[in-house]
Design a protein around this nucleic acid. Structure first.
Lengths: 215, 215
DNA sequence: GACACAGTACCAACTGGTTGGTATGTTGTC
DNA sequence: GACAACATACCAACCAGTTGGTACTGTGTC
């Protein structure tokens, strides 16, 4: 009755423990928070034992750092493959990014909120390593927007002191704040409303209607 | 050698334990997070014993609910007494509010960030009671802005579907998000930059220059 | 105004369950 | 058979909450 491939509740195949733990960490920590999540919780969710956990991670904090990097990698791949890069003008791409972020907000808050935003609040005072991993994740994602924002900023916005770096970070701040408030209300619509405000703000700063038909 | 009033490191006077614990909770939880803060931490910060803690609060969670209410009360008094209510037009009052919020962002993140925003992220999945207390605090504060925002919204903004309730909540979301990102970077300037963006956005929606000289 | 009485505020020591982490054994793979 | 990838059993520290008691304060009574 041995199985070489896990099916259903069967034993997971050898060599998958680390990946399973990271995937479980993303889900469980987003739902429960980092401090409230025990190592046993993570092992149970991943279907592995504690021995496997400490074989792959030196400590719970080390897993948190790895989970932040795992989060960056998986979400980075998701965003890199998304269709919001397709429009021809940078302004349209930025707004398409916002639309894409909005479309992701659905279901339970634990499903659409941000792992590193949640962890930041908790470990801020306790673990600089985890905090820096969260910072790198947030800032790294903001960086992927910066070039398009820089290209799309109107002269008026630039004259008003708006910088691409600051605006890219602001998009992340609005999203993080939208998650916090919608978590408090337990209502995804609150988050969508804030994203709508973000979109409206960006529309005033970016050259949305600029002609891009030049060869 | 008896003292009726505690001085320096002396023993605090009788009857102050509850207040001291709530004040300590605001500081310690903002710095460490809720889950990472132990009851002993709070007692040590407040200079009281565990017996006093459980005399006043049925559980650690009960303290968290009381701390959220305490936070609402103390910040509510701060904002009620602030001078941003003085301008004569509602739009100016809203922008003065944003300026006031910006001026509060200084020093360590633990000093300027929001207790209930921090707690929301952590207890969201575990304690509906605390989450609701956090929700009430955030939404209650947003409510104090709603009337001025409603009066200040331009016809164009209203035609575009902007509602005062949604915009009031959005201001809180931006602030919460600014706190998250500035915590990740450990840099208050990040938060100030987002508040500047919020101010610029509000300026486009509110009748800032509307003549208010009617008797 | 002295005094018994009651209730509140607080304290120090303790407890039982939990938690991060470890020591050691077992299984699969090259 | 050597090494990585697990699994099992266990531990010491920690932590929320309890217990049994003390100090102080107000109150009714005479």
């Amino acid at each position: 009755m041995r199985e070489t491939v896990a099916t259903g509740t069967g034993k997971p195949p050898r060599g998958m423990a680390r990946e399973r733990l990271l995937d479980a960490a993303v889900d469980v920590i987003r739902a429960q928070g980092y401090s409230a999540t025990t190592v046993d919780d993570l092992c149970a969710a991943a279907g592995v034992t504690k021995g496997a956990f400490f074989h792959h991670f030196a400590s719970k904090d080390a897993l948190a750092v790895a989970a932040a990097e795992h989060w960056s990698a998986t979400t980075g791949a998701l965003f890199a493959a998304a269709s919001y890069h397709e429009p021809t003008t940078p302004a349209e791409r930025v707004l398409a990014y916002v639309d894409f972020r909005r479309s992701l907000i659905d279901g339970e808050p634990a499903a659409y909120t941000c792992l590193v935003g949640t962890m930041t609040q908790e470990v801020f005072g306790a673990s600089p390593e985890i905090r820096n991993a969260c910072r790198d994740s947030i800032f790294g994602h903001a960086d992927t927007l910066q070039a398009d924002i820089a290209d799309a900023l109107t002269d008026a916005a630039k004259a008003d002191g708006v910088t691409a770096a600051s605006l890219a970070l602001h998009t992340q701040a609005v999203l993080q704040g939208a998650f916090v408030v919608s978590k408090a209300a337990n209502d995804p619509q609150i988050a969508r409303d804030s994203v709508d405000h973000l979109r409206r703000y960006l529309s005033t700063l970016l050259a949305v209607d600029r002609d891009a038909m030049t060869p």
